[in-house]
Design a protein around this nucleic acid. Structure first.
Lengths: 204, 204
DNA sequence: GCAAAAATTTCAGGATCTGCAATGTTTCAG
DNA sequence: CTGAAACATTGCAGATCCTGAAATTTTTGC
């Protein structure tokens, strides 16, 4: 019996919680992929997992949130990662580096994410949430970028612009990855997008 | 009696419709600015204008839509404008030009738009809709960019990236404009953002 | 005026989402 | 093993959102 338990050694309770959450996510994704967002009710999803619809709302604040998937690890983690990049590295390159690890996590679950991305394509009302602007994560990254540049946030617009552009690059990479059926490496696609940004988006 | 009526010569009916729509927009904006999005119901808005709540939904598909304001003129118009720009002009510059006229329209109604932008700041859940990705307008512009570059849409990601980056530039410009209380010209702020994009977002 | 067209209203109803209280489970200390 | 505390699930009531359809009122063109 080790003193420090491995991270995924959880009690029965938390294990069941994770199971239920995953089951709800999965049911939501497959049902919406089959029938479309509007034709799936929360009750349908809950029934597929055999829990009450009230329980669904204990896990997700809205139907859409069950489709969004895990966002970035945590705002604090993102911030730490960004601050770990040496100051000489240009901002855009730093942003590329910290998104890379997020995208690697996406790439590890191809089926799940391709399904998710297909759902997004077919239900464009979800698209704004794919990399949701205004999210806490974006705010934190933006603030860190501002600090890195020695700019007051909200004065030059540079941090907002760089962060926003990076999110667009991520979104484009994911969409292309989905369209290519996973035959291209997601990280390569992201690198390409970042390179185009760094080059000033010259005509191709 | 001229043969061609001026554009805003409308019958009483259409005039009233515009009035009602404007009144609903205004009521929605002021109420939400005062109390916050969650604390304002559709019934509140309808009551403030003295119409039934069902009528509200005849004008707007959702509560949020009453706050969003007039999007781009029309998708077809955007497309035409973009195609009117000579082919030698770089894509990003072309995008700057067509967004400029949209922003000029915003600048003409400063109070209304500053109010709107304040509401957006205070209710971040609306932010993704400020320049809504996935909207018809974005799709059309993206397709036009693809044509202009002679690229198949969805293969290189360039049109998506350029269009998305342009929208970020617009969003940043509007946010800064709002933060500056309108003391700076919105079009100048947008020009600045586009210049940073074209320069490849170098560290400031 | 009068009849057609259009806008508004009323009504019924499905769906989303939130508190709250009751009822099970899981955990942990003794 | 056992009881109590902690936590998860559930049912229920209710507010709000949004839609379709039919009834009613207003506007328009003649």
């Amino acid at each position: 019996m080790t003193i420090v338990d491995s991270a995924d050694e959880l009690g029965r309770r938390d294990r069941k919680k994770l199971e239920t959450r995953a089951a709800l996510e999965h049911a939501a994704l497959t049902l919406v992929a089959e029938r479309g967002l509007a034709a799936v009710t929360v009750e349908d999803i809950a029934e597929a997992v055999d829990v009450s619809s009230r329980t669904f709302f204990n896990y997700f604040p809205s139907k859409e949130d069950a489709l969004i998937g895990p966002g970035p690890a945590s705002a604090a983690e993102l911030r730490a990662k960004l601050e770990a990049v040496p100051a000489e590295v240009p901002v855009l390159e730093a942003l590329r580096l910290i998104t890379r690890s997020e995208l690697e996590r996406v790439q590890e679950r191809p089926e799940q994410w391709m399904l998710r991305l297909r759902v997004y394509e077919q239900n464009p009302s979800l698209l704004p949430k794919l990399v949701s602007s205004g999210s806490e994560a974006e705010q934190v990254v933006m603030a860190a970028v501002a600090r890195r540049c020695g700019v007051e946030p909200g004065t030059t617009g540079y941090p907002e612009l760089a962060t926003g552009a990076a999110l667009v690059a991520v979104r484009v990479a994911m969409t292309r990855w989905s369209a290519a059926g996973g035959r291209l490496a997601l990280t390569d696609l992201a690198d390409e997008a970042f390179a185009q940004l760094a080059a000033g988006l010259p005509n191709p």
